[in-house]
Design a protein around this nucleic acid. Sequence first.
RNA 1: GGGCGGUUAGCUCAGCUGGUUAGAGCGCCUGCCUUACAAGCAGGAGGUCGCAGGUUCGAGCCCUGCACUGCCCACCA
Length: 953
Amino acid sequence: MSQRSQIVQEDPAERPKRRELPKAYDPAAIEDRWAAYWVSERLFEVKTPSSGELDKLRNGGHGRFTVLLPPPNVTGNLHMGHMFEHTETDILVRWHRMRGDLTVWVPGTDHAGIATQMLVERQLTAEGTSRQQLGREAFVERVWQWRAHYGGAILASMKRIGDTVDWSREYFTMDQNLSHAVREAFVRLYEQGLIYRGAYIVNWCPRCQTAISDLEVAHEEQQGKLWEIKYPVIGSEGEFLTVATTRPETMLGDAAVAVNPADERYQRLIGKTLRLPLVDREIRIIADDWVKSDFGTGAVKVTPAHDPNDFAIGQRHNLPAISVMDETAHMNAEAGAYAGLDRYAARKRVLADLEEQGLLGAVRDHVNSIGKCDRCRTVVEPRLSTQWFVAVNQKPKPGTTTGNSTMAELATAAVKPSAAGRRAIRITPENNEKIYLDWMANLYDWCISRQLWWGHRIPAWHCAGCQQITVARQDPTACAHCGSADIAQETDVLDTWFSSGLLPVTVFGWPPADGKPTPDLTAFYPTSLLVTGFDILFFWMARMILLGCWFTQDIPLPDGSPRALEETVPFREVYIHALVRDADRQKMSKTKGNVIDPVEIVERYGTDAVRFTLASMASPGTDIAFSEARTEGYRAFANKIWNAARFIFMNVEKAREAGITVDPSMLGQMPSVPPYAPIEARWIAARANAVAHEVNAALGDYRFHEAANLVYQFFWGDFCDWYLEIVKLRLDFSETTDPAYARAALTTLLQTFETALRLLSPFMPFLTEELWHALYEGHPPARSIALTRYPQGATAAGDTVEAEFALLQDLIVTVRALRKDLGVEEKLAVPIRLHAHAAGHPFAKNLEIVQRLARVSAIENVDKLPEGAATRSTPQFDVQVVYEKKIDTSAERERLNKELARYEKEQATAGQQLSDEAFLAKAPAAVVEGRQRRAAELVVLIEKTRKALEDLG
RNA sequence: GGGCGGUUAGCUCAGCUGGUUAGAGCGCCUGCCUUACAAGCAGGAGGUCGCAGGUUCGAGCCCUGCACUGCCCACCA
């Protein structure tokens, strides 16, 4: 084993030794090492600050930045959507940390009731057993085992992609302390009169055999039928009332037929009785406003146990609710002859029987939307069952809390802008604010019970004696109402979102034992930002707001004063990110088989390239189509950075050999360049400042794509293509050159590179970490680049270096193009003739730059360029390349004509505007001036172009 | 039924509150292994900004209508 690889094992920060950098960047060679280092060194763990430390932070002008990771399901693997979300969050987290904010990103996983239970049940099926055979306790134990084995997959992936979360704060929603908090929340809401139990129509999944919330139902349009069924009117032989239905099998549970009270067709029938076919039950004809006369036949069969609307009608008219199906959506004993049939089989049979009896009327095609279980796509059955609900629109019992609002009222106020336009929670993109508020305004009570075994079991006990319910913080031994010991705990568990909705408070130690905020709540609540997808806007975000605002309203601020709404919100900002789709804009799904595995992509291109791809496409509000072509491009970018580093390190070595070194303590700052320094040094310093300034602004507005493109352009376009090429002129360490001159150049080079690495590090943490350590040769000023400060940058007013440099670039590009058109061989340096009219132009002072970058052997400055040679002109200069070959005349003419046409067209519009008094009067002065300047330029350009054409001819 | 977004180069997308000549990456064409990088360098071609009206001195951007497309919500028997 070589000495080098031994060092690697001992301390990753020691690597690599500079001269050994391979020619091509190989992410696989460094990423695992740094990923492990960040975790093992506990670099991103944050101890809870004391109040004194918090004061110090504030006085130092720094803030706090707290983020709660949307907990992935324990069953989950990292998919592209996660990676996208994590990339955006990690960029912000790293950025804030580097700005000196106290930054905590809290990770964890969700027990994911239904998903996990289904998964383990599938395993049991494969083993030839079932959860029923196992029994509840053994089954739950089995799920815990599963979790211990496989539940950490996604967390491992997070470590691999470099998420800088605080692993010391990792949670699982069924951890003991969190379970304790969930129970406390349930008990409090119950005491406040905001949790109730009752028999209502809920969405029931016959496959999962549990109630699910409205949100967990996905509606799909489907071509169905509308059947008309004739119900015989009792006491009026031969007369029928015809109803229309999409679900004929439910007629077995009909309790009435309803018509609109204003419907003249049916006036005389209201109050009469019908004979329900097939079942032979007598049902009334009732009048209810809900019925629309113009739909179907204007008469509706009412099945209170199988339809939410019918249930409501049933309540109004005091009708019996007859369930004709069981929990597996098979017909039950109430369905008589149809008992045991599956709902669709029953439908067929019912229709056939009606047909036979001549009671089936018209059958029409009808498009309706059917609800499917979000989890298993089974058609959901509205089912009457006893469930637990949170009353979101009800006021709490007096005296049970400090507030007197409903949960929905608080959750609305938290987002709604005040008269002054202030918001306790700001949502980006902001159109989501309206979506949220609309949803909140129409919120129904939240069904929180699930008929599952995996989850937080509801802390309620049913008394066999008095039938009352005891809800308690400690497991009771006797009924609180009658004292009977014959009590049994509720078998239902809580909706997963009930516990995850509490996370912003529970991860910080809620409930506090003494009623005062815990140190973590004081330091980290409200959290700063929620980064999440639109898909869990209501599931999770809304529930966190509902619960967070609710439970913290009773916790005073650390100084004892009551907590205002702004201090109760679970997060101050929400950033809703877009969806990652495949390259064809299709939603990724397992069934379509178009899922892109981020880990696989990461292995092929490197984490940094994938992160950069995602960041560069992350324009707020727009879904992104993930393209590998793009990732390939950013892998090339990583390679570019790598090779720039090789070049720089090579020169550091050369300088060292010549006895020239740069003090490492100089490196960690923006290049600061005196006015007498060479133009490229002043220019790159100005660019670095401007770019840093813009990147910070972009990140502050969640414009990730803009920030990424800025650093990309800066590094590749400015730093590599121009600055590095020019600085090669200065890196002359031979004895004939003044060493101060070379050292100054080297210092600026290193400072700029170091600045660039820090600018890039939130986007490309692995590569920048590696090169940053290499730059400091194993003696870095911090344990990680992530713990250094982010370049802030400044805009220098009145600095003309950028304009000056642009002119220099213009000349170089123009000469290069002319050379190409003349067919000058790449390598051949040729003289040019230059006529520059701008006073104080930068050409004379920077001959060597022009010579090197444009392959020019000599520059002859002339007042007038000779005729007959191809000339290129800009408003500031005219230039010719001295070369024996003639230009391709026809190609050049075509080019010039095209250019001339463009200039003339532009001149026409400019002229029109400048002669328009309305324009002159109304347009801002800067715009008018700009146009005038350009018009003057155009006159010159057109004249020059015409002359060039003449010369050609 | 209600609401929201998209339509810009062959492809994927930028384009902030309307203002000089609409940009990038990939792809394409041409020439280069120029001693950091061929995952590179240099030069270049390519766009009536979905359609039709309107507002404005000025519209890719604002308004109206239309077309296509995607998404969300909804107790449409």
